[in-house]
């Protein structure tokens, strides 16, 4: 089979495995892709990237520590990194519902992220609940926080919350902090 056709076949396979989530976490690790697609799996990822761009999607590789890796210059961490497809276009608030999110849940996540970053990486869970309890019932805040911990947006360590791998993969944190430090009321 010619190389181009072989790569195309692999691209189809790659996109299928990245889209279909198995087990709890979305995404597939680098070493799993190598096993599935062969040693040239990064070449396949780059080819898939081109196809997905036209659809407003992008392949990202993120480590468990939340570091986004450059696919052009992959380091040794790429093998352990998790490959995911993200939506490049930003969602509109009215689209949240159709994606299975409530406005207040997203506000809880945003508040938790900003507050955790403002405390340099970790924040007491109780403080986040206190901050939001005027706007959202406490049980709903706790339920949302538990859900975000479960799906990887946040991590809990002795009642302290910190950012999870998924937040680093999906959220532009620098832009978020810029927005919150410049937005006028």
């Amino acid at each position: 089979m010619p190389k181009r056709k072989r790569i195309e076949e692999k691209v189809k396979r790659l996109i299928a495995v990245l889209f279909l989530r198995s087990r709890g976490r979305p995404g597939v690790r680098g070493y799993e892709l190598r096993k599935l697609l062969g040693e040239d799996y990064l070449e396949v990822v780059k080819a898939a990237q081109k196809k997905l761009e036209a659809l407003g999607l992008e392949v990202r590789a993120v480590t468990d520590e939340g570091k986004l890796l450059d696919l052009e210059n992959p380091g040794s961490e790429i093998s352990e990194a998790r490959f995911v497809i993200v939506v490049k276009e930003n969602l509109k608030p009215e689209e949240l519902k159709s994606c299975g999110w409530r406005i207040d849940e997203i506000a809880v996540l945003a508040t938790a992220i900003v507050y955790i970053l403002s405390l340099r990486g970790k924040a007491p869970r109780e403080s986040i609940v206190q901050l939001l309890r005027d706007k959202v019932p406490e049980w709903r805040i706790n339920m949302a926080l538990d859900r975000f911990i479960k799906i990887g947006y946040l991590e809990e360590e002795d009642d302290l919350l910190k950012l999870g791998w998924r937040t680093y993969a999906e959220v532009d944190l620098e832009k978020l902090m810029t927005i919150f430090s410049t937005s006028t009321q």
């Binding site: 990245l18 993200v86 939506v87 490049k88 930003n90 945003a110 532009d172 978020l176 937005s183």
Partner: peptide, 13 residues
């Protein structure tokens, strides 16, 4: 939520 949506690229799966 609106501000957050401006910087959020959710995973598609």
């Amino acid at each position: 939520a609106e501000k957050f949506c401006e910087v959020w690229n959710p995973i598609a799966y």
